[in-house]
């Protein structure tokens, strides 16, 4: 069933049947349910989905940074073939920042207000690389200039509040890339910024990662950014993966009925996902995930099987689609058109 795509390259990151749960008084909430995907070296994987779909949780689960009581309840995360989801904290922290860098949504709150930018850079650099204070400072200045901060030798001694939001996100990016990680997880890195600055930050991220061959897991609501930046796209719905495939497929000829709804209008740069949604109803809350295919109450194509059996991802061309429409039996009998 699981057709191998492009088997020549081994994946950098493999996520297998990942499950994230929140134990609550009224039972366990499954916020990420049985998700599998992989990212190849240097590849940009866009992750889209409505608010609450589980995108951020998936990103944080990859570096095992879930806030308790949230926890990884099943599945595996592998980096370069090695399992990292079950590592002890002390080993994990040599992966965080060193192998996998993280960029969060809000640059205004990502930096500690009480320390200079230089302090935070040097401390990160020296955590991961064997450098003297002087060397680390020099590298910090280089990094600031790389992310486009002018007069870095002066500004390195300033505090975060002395920088604008866009500048701060540049600093956050510098911090994320300072140890040359092979993967960056960027969780809506531009959502909190002025529209005029968003493109610059995406360009910066693209350029840096391209130069260093860094792969990116780019979580965003901005379909324009996805179209321009991503190599492949994963679409999440209610904690599950609806569809994952090459960017042209997902955007131009999506297979999954949910993705079709999302792409109902042709996205242009800067347009937001929410406004594109052409599907009636709202994504279910975690406490009331429908049986079978979680999308069936909203799905225009739903049929008898959908509300009883949950579809597993099915390989269609280069994509994987979790929808019964693409089940072998139906495809063979020619029931799916389009």
């Amino acid at each position: 069933m699981m057709a191998q795509t492009d088997s020549s390259e081994t994946p950098l990151l493999e996520v297998l049947n990942l499950r994230v749960e929140f134990p609550t008084r009224r039972g366990t909430l499954v916020a990420v349910d049985d998700i599998s995907f992989d990212i190849k070296p240097g590849e940009v994987l866009g992750v889209v989905g409505e608010s609450g779909a589980g995108k951020s949780l998936t990103g944080t689960a990859v570096i095992n940074l879930l806030e308790p009581p949230g926890r990884i309840a099943g599945g595996e995360v592998r980096l370069k073939g090695q399992r990292i989801d079950n590592l002890p904290q002390e080993k994990l922290r040599h992966i965080r920042g060193r192998q996998i860098g993280m960029v969060f949504q809000d640059p205004l709150t990502s930096l500690n207000p009480l320390y200079t930018v230089g302090y935070q850079l040097e401390e990160t650099i020296r955590t991961h690389m064997n450098m003297s204070e002087g060397q680390a400072r020099k590298r910090g200045i280089e990094l600031l200039s790389e992310v486009g901060i002018s007069a870095p030798q002066d500004r390195i001694d300033q505090y975060p509040h002395q920088f604008s939001g866009g500048m701060r996100q540049r600093i956050v990016i510098a911090l994320a890339v300072c140890a040359n990680p092979s993967l960056i997880i960027a969780d809506e890195p531009t959502t909190a910024l002025d529209v005029s600055i968003q493109a610059q930050i995406i360009d910066l991220l693209k350029r840096l990662c391209h130069e260093q061959g860094t792969a990116v897991m780019l979580i965003t609501h901005d379909m324009g950014v996805i179209a321009e930046t991503a190599d492949r796209v994963a679409v999440m719905y209610a904690g599950r993966l609806a569809e994952v495939g090459p960017v042209q497929n997902v955007i131009k000829q999506p297979y999954h009925p949910y993705t079709k709804g999302l792409m109902g209008a042709i996205p242009t740069v800067g347009q937001k996902l929410e406004r594109l949604t052409q599907i009636d109803g709202a994504m279910p809350r975690l406490t009331e995930i429908p049986s079978g295919c979680a999308f069936h109450p909203r799905c225009p194509k739903a049929f008898d099987r959908c509300d009883t059996e949950r579809p597993d991802p099915i390989a269609v061309e280069e994509s994987k689609v979790a929808c019964w429409l693409y089940d072998d039996a139906r495809v063979l009998s020619g029931e799916t058109e389009q």
Partner: peptide, 17 residues
């Protein structure tokens, strides 16, 4: 619970730091 602590962990700093 703040973002900068989460980010500090994501940067791989030691628990002590």
């Amino acid at each position: 619970r703040t973002d900068y602590i989460k980010f500090a962990r994501a940067r791989g700093l030691s628990n002590r730091a």
